[in-house]
Design a binder for these strands. Structure first.
Lengths: 167, 167
DNA sequence: GATTGACTTGTTATCATGTAACATGAAAGG
DNA sequence: CCTTTCATGTTACATGATAACAAGTCAATC
């Protein structure tokens, strides 16, 4: 129930902190991680990670690309996408995803706190009422002082049918 | 603990069911809802909803657009987007969102079950370790027989700073 | 130290997704 | 009938993402 554990561990992003150190530590860990995993930390990749680390914000690939181009790296989309993909693959960055797709609502009217289950084999989508999950999320967020207004909860996996009969 | 409550209420999407009835019921409820809310159920909108209801799948806007165009409606993107937005606004469809953006990972190495908190005012993003939320989601999913492999949990709201000093 | 092979970077071209801005058309209300 | 409002349609563009290919780098071996 301690809302502020070791700041080095929990890094709330909202709290005031020594960002320079925060950045340096992440870069440091990255180097170590890559050394152990055999990945190569090249200039573009390092710079890309630094750019991402500058702010506690999610950035679009093209925003990153602009920065890279301004510093003499290639100005074509693949340059940024490749560096970003590399970082994600090695656990150094996250991709915040969106499906950009629509589905009919099967529970209109009921109070809405849905979660979505998407089968990666047959693309079937199930909408579940998920108040407990939303509650768990809101509680966690509240510990950092964040007020959740809307939440997106999507799971990818295998539906019973596809799990039973893998193609 | 009943894995199969009233099928009319829980509609698992994965279970065998009378889809014709399922579709009809949703359309029916939609009409009622719009009548109460004052929304207008026009031909494009109705057709769009029907298309979405045909399958338990999420569809891309351009996929819907192709269908609409083939049936004599406009063939420009806004036609589909407007109909879909309308349905979403009136609670008749969901938009499965993802941010399509990147952020540096602040907890590399730790076992990863993160949730993201995105402040809508300052765009600051916090990454939280959220095993309880993932656990709650997996438990819920397991009740339908779905095996979660990856989950995306994103919350939009106000960070403490922006909540305290609303611009 | 030359050669090979894997990997990285860069390019061009194209596709997919989403929106802004404006013109026309139908419908409800006075 | 006229006005206001909302729906539909268009063109044009912004943004996000990838395929396919050419060239450079680097380490390891022969």
């Amino acid at each position: 129930m301690n809302a502020r554990p070791d700041p080095d561990q929990a890094t709330p992003a909202f709290a005031a902190h020594d960002h320079r150190a925060c950045e340096a530590r992440a870069l440091d860990e990255a180097e170590g991680r890559l050394a152990r995993q055999g990945g190569r930390m090249t200039p573009v990749r390092r710079r890309t990670l630094e750019i991402l680390l500058e702010s506690h914000r999610a950035m679009g690939a093209y925003e990153v690309l602009d920065r890279l181009a301004a510093e003499g790296f290639g100005r074509q989309p693949p340059v940024a996408y490749r560096a970003l993909d590399f970082l994600v693959e090695h656990g150094l960055a996250h991709r915040l995803q969106r499906l950009n797709a629509f589905a009919a609502c099967l529970h209109p009217g009921q109070d809405h706190a849905p979660a979505f289950l998407i089968c990666r084999a047959c693309d079937t989508l199930a909408e579940l009422p998920a108040p407990p999950v939303h509650a768990a999320l809101s509680d966690l967020a509240a510990e950092t002082g964040f007020a959740v207004e809307r939440a997106t909860i999507e799971a990818v996996g295998l539906c019973p049918a596809c799990a039973g009969a893998p193609a």
